[in-house]
Computed example of a mutant assay.
Amino acid sequence: MTDEEKLAVEARREIERQELMQQKRVAMETNKIIKEQQEKERLRKMEISQKAAEEEERYRKEMEKIEAEERKHNTQWEADWGSREKSKSPSPVPSPSPPSRSPPPSKPRSSAAEANTDEDEEKEGREGFQKYLDDFDPYSMFTPEQIEGKDVRLLRIKKEGPLDLAVEGGIDSPLGKLVVSAIYEGGSADKHGGVVAGDEIMAVNGKILTDMTLTEGQNSLSQAWNRGGDWIDLVIAVSPPKEYEDEVTFF
């Protein structure tokens, strides 16, 4: 080989070496970028996992706080009103409002009260009778949200024959609550005179009915009525507008 040929071979080899070095550098840079991306992904997953754990711990503490408040509320409620019945699906009991009976036509309470003044006075004179219990505090049974804007009253109804009070609605209905649909003439609710069609039934004998379906509410009323004792306590939210102080009807 001549000197020129040798120089050409050496130059070609140098070029090949430079190309190999360049490829190596590119490969190393690419590998570095991939490792950086993998590390970022690992850190991102760790951060997500840590946040999930923190959120779960926060939720657990919040639930413990809510359960503690609920236990405190239940303890206070039971101290004031006795043991709350837990069953939401009582065995079938005859409804307190027979479906075969049709409700009587609406009667103006005020005019009926004027026509039965003597009878009202006789009723008020009965021993132990109070149309509404004056010392009832609705906040001892319900939350402020449940009774906001409502005129809540406690009635003590004497058991004189059937209750004869029909209800409609329920928590799963468009009404969203239990509402008196009719008072049958001659029944205990009619004789008492403190509840009329349109009033909301909120509790009976200390049992809250605001979250019950129609069937559950009817069963609770029937059970309370058929249980021992001469009276039942009925908590209602007055259906506005009514002037209850002057509206009493007895038949």
Rank of each mutant, 00 (worst) to 15 (best):
V180N: 04
L175I: 14
E185S: 12
A112F: 00
S173E: 14
E70I: 00
L178T: 10
R13P: 05
L175A: 15
P162R: 13
A112T: 01
A115P: 01
E19P: 05
A197C: 12
T117Y: 00
D3T: 13
L133E: 07
S110N: 00
L155P: 08
A79H: 14
R58L: 14
T210V: 09
G82R: 07
W81K: 00
F251P: 15
P104M: 01
K177F: 03
A52Q: 15
H192P: 03
E69Y: 08
L175D: 15
T210M: 02
K40P: 02
W81F: 15
Q130M: 12
A112W: 02
K32E: 07
G82Y: 12
E55I: 00
D134E: 12
L133F: 07
E47P: 04
S239A: 15
Q38A: 10
S110Q: 06
P105T: 00
D151H: 08
A224K: 06
P108W: 04
P103R: 05
E41G: 05
E145I: 09
K35L: 05
T2G: 01
K107D: 00
G194N: 01
S111A: 11
S140A: 10
L165A: 04
S181D: 12
I48T: 07
L221D: 06
S49W: 06
T249S: 03
E57A: 13
K24T: 02
L133W: 03
K131Y: 05
R44N: 15
E85N: 03
R71I: 06
K159M: 11
S111T: 14
M63E: 14
E54W: 02
G169E: 09
S87L: 02
D172K: 08
E185L: 12
V235Y: 10
A113E: 15
M21A: 02
Y132N: 05
D135H: 07
F250Y: 13
K86I: 04
K242S: 11
E55H: 05
D233Y: 12
T143R: 01
E57R: 11
Q146N: 11
P92K: 13
M212T: 08
L175W: 07
F129T: 09
E185M: 12
A224E: 09
E247H: 11
K6C: 01
G198T: 06
F251G: 14
G82F: 10
E56F: 03
S95G: 04
R60D: 13
S89Q: 13
M28G: 09
F129S: 04
Y139L: 07
K51S: 13
A8V: 08
E78V: 07
K177C: 13
S102L: 07
E168V: 13
L20G: 02
S110W: 13
V180A: 10
A115C: 06
S83Q: 03
K242T: 03
Y244C: 11
E148T: 09
D120G: 08
F251W: 13
Y59S: 11
G186I: 14
L7R: 14
